[in-house]
């Protein structure tokens, strides 16, 4: 028996830069089964209704990473997003190109910014010439060493994470989730001899602009979990270099601050992160806030059992070396 069909309305972003005055949304309504992938619907529209619709796709099996786009505002692969749940939740399906990359036509974007960030992290092994790989064993690694890659080798470079990232949207300095997840992959590769150099170089170049909003981790169709690997990079960067950046100083400052009373001392933290001169720059804002919220100048009370916290710090900071 054939599955029942539903009437599905698509509002598709249409735009030809240089030709159209502004983007518009065009509605197409089709009868489809709920498990139809959005990509299948788009191809049907193009084949049967409107041959001018432009989109990018290839494998239709969530392997090539070509068909990432925004589906009801979520960055997703069109080939593995079914229409049923979208219609159920939104009553229609709004299809738009990925964000954070200029539109070339309709749903096709120029991925140059995404690939530029990828190239910048130098995504290739840098072998130490003094330690050549033994003949025939170029990829020899222990299972434990392979485990350190976590999910990063699964990345198909679809750019869904780049599209979903609010830091990329707001700041051109941020390399984006994919480039940083890829960087992590090389930093933990036991064959790569540039680990320290990679960590040193990425720090002033946007590592600390990650908001840890985890939108990348939700957008990723391969569960690469970029936000969690960016966290790992931050901890590794601190271990390698200490507080060389505002971001790392703030993380270290917060950790030390918490040890003091068990509660946050807001003023002390500002001073640890920004220094006295940095604090001066924030005096105006500080007074504005203080007039409504005078507690910002109060020292927090010490929690009971602060000695327990001190002992936890003594045992785990810095973290003891893991068993190999």
């Amino acid at each position: 028996m054939a599955a029942e069909t539903i009437s599905a309305s698509f509002d598709i972003y249409r735009y030809r830069p240089g030709k159209d005055a502004s983007p518009r949304y065009q509605r197409y309504t089709l009868d489809l089964t709920p498990h139809t992938p959005v990509l299948t619907a788009l191809l049907k529209i193009r084949a049967e209704v409107d041959p001018t619709l432009s989109l990018r796709y290839s494998c239709r099996s969530a392997i090539c990473g070509s068909c990432a786009m925004q589906i009801n505002s979520k960055s997703r692969l069109a080939c593995e997003t079914h229409i049923g749940p979208e219609i159920e939740r939104h009553g229609r399906i709004v299809v738009e190109p990925m964000r954070n990359q200029p539109v070339l036509r309709d749903l096709v974007v120029d991925q140059a910014p995404f690939w530029r960030e990828y190239d910048k992290i130098e995504p290739h092994l840098k072998l130490d010439p003094r330690h050549p790989m033994p003949e025939g064993k170029a990829t020899a690694m222990t299972p434990a060493q392979v485990d350190r890659f976590k999910e990063t080798p699964r990345c198909i470079a679809c750019a869904a994470c780049y599209s979903a990232c609010p830091a990329v949207e707001a700041d051109a300095e941020f390399p984006g989730p994919m480039a940083l997840a890829k960087l992590y992959r090389f930093v933990v590769d036991p064959r790569d001899r540039a680990t320290q150099d990679r960590l040193v170089r990425i720090q002033p170049n946007g590592l600390w602009l990650c908001l840890r909003c985890h939108l990348c981790t939700e957008a990723c169709p391969k569960d690469v979990r970029p936000s969690e690997r960016i966290r790992d990079l931050k901890e590794m960067a601190i271990a390698a270099q200490g507080g060389t950046e505002t971001g790392s100083r703030h993380a270290i400052g917060f950790k030390e601050n918490l040890k003091g009373a068990g509660q946050l001392n807001e003023m002390q933290l500002v001073r640890a992160t920004s220094g006295l001169t940095g604090m001066l720059g924030q005096v105006g804002q500080g007074i504005r806030v203080w007039r409504k919220k005078p507690e910002i100048l109060k020292r927090p009370r010490k929690i009971e059992g602060l000695d327990e916290l001190e002992k936890i710090y003594a045992a785990l900071d810095p973290p003891p070396k893991e068993e190999p």
């Binding site: 993380a251 509660q263 009971e304 916290l309 710090y313 045992a315 900071d317």
Partner: peptide
């Protein structure tokens, strides 16, 4: 509970994951 401490606010997690979990 006057013995509850701060949760680390995501910043302690960046500096030292295992410490943050223990806290």
């Amino acid at each position: 509970f006057p013995n509850f401490s701060c949760c680390g606010s995501g910043f302690v997690d960046e500096a030292n994951e295992v410490l943050n979990i223990a806290i």
